[in-house]
């Protein structure tokens, strides 16, 4: 996905809305900036398909050797797909965070609002100030 068209949590998760089989689907991942900060990831815990999440809920964790970072859901929705292969292939996440490194997909309602999330410029600005 093109990072410039995505929306962001200040906690470094991205979300993009696509249409799949006539449904509104939110794809969620974490940003290149976050991955750089975390350095070598060693483990990832992900939710079950079917889990109902609200924006701000913790849906998983990524771990490096000496740190744990919770993953926060950017939008309301139900988990329809979990990128399980990532867990055994964390390099993929680092190599292509906005593409094949996606983490979960959520079914969201038709009028999903992304207004509370940062746009690309605002997110980059936040990173630059960190």
């Amino acid at each position: 996905m093109n990072p410039e068209t995505l929306r962001y949590n200040s906690s470094h998760e991205w979300v993009g809305i696509v249409e799949e089989n006539g449904e509104q689907i939110a794809i969620v991942g974490i940003t290149d900036f976050a991955l750089e900060q975390l350095t070598d990831l060693v483990y990832m815990a992900l939710p079950q398909v079917g889990t109902q999440l609200s924006a701000g809920d913790e849906f998983g964790e990524v771990e490096s050797v000496k740190a744990v970072s919770p993953l926060y859901c950017p939008v309301d929705g139900q988990v329809v797909e979990v990128h399980q292969e990532l867990v055994d292939n964390l390099e993929q996440l680092a190599q292509d965070p906005f593409g094949s490194g996606w983490i979960i997909k959520l079914r969201v309602g038709g009028n999903v609002s992304l207004d509370n999330l940062l746009d690309y410029d605002a997110y980059r600005k936040q990173c630059a100030e960190a």
């Binding site: 060693v42 771990e63 490096s64 050797v65 000496k66 740190a67 744990v68």
Partner: peptide, 12 residues
């Protein structure tokens, strides 16, 4: 697997 432990995960 130190991320299980109190010095990293604290209350969790």
């Amino acid at each position: 697997l130190q991320t299980r432990e109190q010095h990293i995960r604290r209350e969790k």
